[in-house]
Each structure stands twice: as C-alpha cells, then as structure tokens.
Design a protein around this nucleic acid. Structure first.
Lengths: 110, 110
DNA sequence: TGCCTATATATAGCGTCCCTATATAGTGGT
DNA sequence: ACCACTATATAGGGACGCTATATATAGGCA
C-alpha cells in the first residue's frame, strides 16, 4: 500500500478517473480504485465520503439517490461537465510532478 | 507551478534527492530544487525550514553550522546513512503511485 | 551615505486532506 | 439467530504546505 503522505491529493484524480467510465455509487468507487490499481491505491470509506462531498460542492460531481427501486439506499455519483473538464489539467499537473521528481533523481548522476 | 495539494509529500523526496549529490545549506537546497525542475517544484522558505527540522528529527539529515569562517551564518545539511537508505523505497512508492494513477486512466479506455 | 535587492534563518497561524474510530442499517448465507 | 458483507455518515486528530511576518548580513548603485 502506498503511504498516506505520498498519495496525498491523488484521491481526487482517482475518483474522477473511475467515474470517467460512468456513474457509480460510493462503495463501488472505492472497490474499483482498489481493483484497478491492484491494491496500490486503497482508501477507507471514511476518507471517501468526505472527499465525495467536497468534490460535489465544487461542482465536479453530481449525486443522486438511486431511483431504480433498489432495495438498498445508494447515492449514485456522476461526473459533471466541470468535473470532466478538470481531468486533463489535473493529469498534466501530476505528470509534471513526476517529471520534476525524475529530473531531481537524474541530476546528481549527470 | 504545481499546486500545493498535488505536490503534498513530495518535498521530502525532493530534499533527499538534491542532498544525494552532497551537503547544502537551506537556501541553496530551495534554489537547486527550483532550478533542477525548471521551476515546476518550488516551495517557499517558510515551508522548507520546518521540513528540514522534521527530517532532521527523524534522523534523515544532519545539520551543522558552517565552520569555515563564513561571513554568513549557515546551517549545512547532509544526508545521514538512514536518509540515504530512505531514498530508494521512497522513489519506489512514488513510482507505484504514478503507475496506479496511469492504470486508472487507462482502465476506462479498455 | 542611503536605499534596494539578494541572501539566510526562523516562527505563528491557517486551511486542507487523509487517517482512525465510531455509528447506523439493510442483505444474504448458514 | 448470528455473522459477514454492503452502504452511508460524522467526529476528532495529525501531518503538511501555505501566507505573513521578523530578523539580519552582503553587495550594488546612486
């Protein structure tokens, strides 16, 4: 598992990424992230729900109680246009960070 | 510049990386990181000094007031053996995170 | 001489994010 | 009846980087 201090800030990108494929409810979001990253990224549900509320309040997600007559009460989250628009720049920022760290690692070998 | 929330936790690795090449004082550490990453990573000195103290208290760095009769009072930081040992696993963690985020991005295209 | 910028270290206070711990409740298997 | 899994929710705390601020020396320029 990747340490908490390292993955700080990556959760937003992880959530946006899994929702890019289609709407999901909270519990399933967590499971997808864990499965798709083969356990490397895994955050507790107590971390996930506050994150979802933050992202919703920023207008990146839209939540709706499932109306399909499900037996269970489920909040289904989907990407808004704003959330989708956030994905590319966010990925760029992360790529920039990794390139920057890579350059620091290489510098002393040069 | 990379946002604060994204680069969270990367500062430690950045400091360890620039000190890998040899001891430096605080102000120079900041300058090297900014220069080597072409401005992508840049943190204020008010962020840097508390970070250096934390890393020193963990035994990763060792500080010494420069004894070379410098006009200016400078604290020179160097990697300890423990700090050097921390570098490889820390880099691995960051690479794991990068790969995990990449897998999430690819998943919905598959 | 006086002023400004760059160098150099340091602390206070704040916001954000992720964590552990805890609460609540429906569902399905044995 | 019990237990594991599913599902959402809140409280409280720790860690980290930020802005703002304070202090002080060195070098350049007018």
């Amino acid at each position: 598992m990747i340490g908490a201090n390292i993955k700080r800030g990556s959760s937003e990108l992880a959530v946006l990424s899994v929702l890019e494929a289609g709407p999901l409810h909270g519990y399933e979001i967590a499971r997808r992230i864990e499965r798709n990253t083969r356990g490397a990224l895994r955050f507790t549900l107590a971390s996930l729900y506050p994150l979802l509320y933050r992202m919703e309040s920023r207008g990146w997600l839209k939540a709706a109680w499932s109306e399909t007559g499900d037996a269970r009460a489920r909040r289904c989250y989907r990407l808004t246009a704003a959330g989708r628009k956030k994905l590319a720049p966010l990925r760029k920022e992360w790529n920039d960070l990794f390139r920057a760290l890579a350059r620091l690692a290489e510098a002393h070998h040069a």
